[in-house]
C-alpha cells in the first residue's frame, strides 16, 4: 500500500471561460492532515471540486488509492471512499438533521455507535436531531456538514473551509472534532484560511497561487517561517 492516498498530476480545469487550475501537482499522504493554503481566488475550492468530479479535469491525472479516477463520475468517486464537505456546506435544508445523516450513510443504516460518537463531538446535533436542517444556525450547519462526512469511514476527507464565518467557541469545537478524526488515522485534505487552525491541525501543507501549487512541505516549517508565509500568502502574523 502506497503512503500516498491522492495524487494530482498536471491537473487543469476551467470554470466557464476562465482557466482556473493551470497544472496542479499535489500529493496527499495517507493518514495525515494536508493543508491546502493560499489567498482567495487562487483555486483551492476549484481543486477540491475537481478532485470530487464536480468540475472536469481538462488535462492531467487524478489518482486515488492506486487508481486513475480522472474520468470517473462524482458518485463513483464518493463510493470509492472520498468524503466531501463543500465550502457552502451542502446541507439539505428541507430534510431533518436525522434525514441528512441517514442519507450520508450510503451503505444503508447509520450505526448507533457512529451516531453516538457524532453526538459526542457535536452535541447540538442531538438537540436538533428531528428539526429541519434549514433551521440550524451557521455553526450547527457546519457541524452537520462535517458529521455527514463522518457518517461512514472514508479513505479521504476533502474539507473546504470548515471554520469560515464561525464564532471562536465553535471553531474550537470544530478543531476538536477534526483532531479526533485525525487521531483516528484519517487522511484529510483541508482548505483553511484561518492560519491558527491550519497550524493546529496540519501535518503537511501545500500553498497555491494562480492555479498552481507553489510550495509544499511540512506544516511546521511553514508555521515557523514568517518570511515564507509573507512571501507565499502575503500573510503577516504580527504579534504571533
Amino acid at each position: 500500500m502506497s503512503d500516498t492516498i491522492l495524487t494530482l498530476t498536471g491537473v487543469q480545469a476551467d470554470i466557464a471561460q476562465y482557466h482556473i487550475l493551470q497544472g496542479v501537482d499535489l500529493a496527499v499522504p495517507r493518514g495525515a492532515v494536508t493543508m491546502l493554503l493560499g489567498r482567495n481566488g487562487v483555486g483551492k475550492t476549484t481543486t477540491l471540486r475537481t478532485i470530487m468530479g464536480h468540475l472536469v479535469a481538462r488535462q492531467g491525472v487524478i489518482g486515488f488509492d492506486g487508481m486513475d479516477i480522472t474520468a470517473r463520475a462524482t458518485s463513483a468517486r464518493a463510493r470509492l471512499g472520498i468524503g466531501y464537505v463543500p465550502e457552502n456546506m451542502g446541507i439539505f435544508s428541507d430534510l431533518t438533521v436525522e434525514e441528512n445523516m441517514v442519507l450520508a450513510a450510503v451503505s444503508g443504516r447509520l450505526l448507533a455507535e457512529r451516531r453516538d460518537r457524532i453526538f459526542a463531538a457535536f452535541p447540538p446535533l442531538r438537540t436538533f436531531w428531528t428539526s429541519d436542517a434549514g433551521t440550524l444556525s451557521g455553526g450547527q450547519k457546519q457541524m452537520l456538514s462535517i458529521a455527514r462526512a463522518m457518517a461512514e469511514d472514508r479513505k479521504l476527507y476533502l474539507i473546504d473551509e470548515p471554520t469560515k464565518g464561525l464564532a471562536p467557541a465553535i471553531i474550537s469545537t470544530m478543531v476538536a472534532a477534526l483532531r479526533e478524526l485525525k487521531d483516528g488515522g484519517a487522511s484529510i485534505l483541508l482548505v483553511e484560511q484561518n492560519f491558527a487552525v491550519a497550524r493546529a491541525l496540519g501535518d503537511h501543507a501545500a500553498v497555491m497561487d494562480d492555479g498552481r501549487i507553489v510550495w509544499s512541505g511540512e506544516m511546521s516549517e511553514l508555521a515557523d517561517d514568517a518570511g515564507l508565509q509573507e512571501r507565499l500568502m502575503g500573510l503577516s502574523m504580527e504579534g504571533k
Binding site: 470530487m52 464536480h54 462524482t74 458518485s75 439539505f92 430534510l95 434525514e99 455527514r148
Partner: peptide, 24 residues
C-alpha cells in the same frame, strides 16, 4: 423511503447528493 429522501435532497442540491455517492 430512502429513494424519496434521495429525490427530495436531489431537488434541493443534486451536486451534493452525487458527492454522497448516489447516481442522480
Amino acid at each position: 423511503t430512502r429513494i424519496g429522501l434521495i429525490v427530495r435532497a436531489g431537488v434541493e442540491n443534486g451536486e451534493m447528493v452525487e458527492a454522497l455517492g448516489y447516481r442522480l
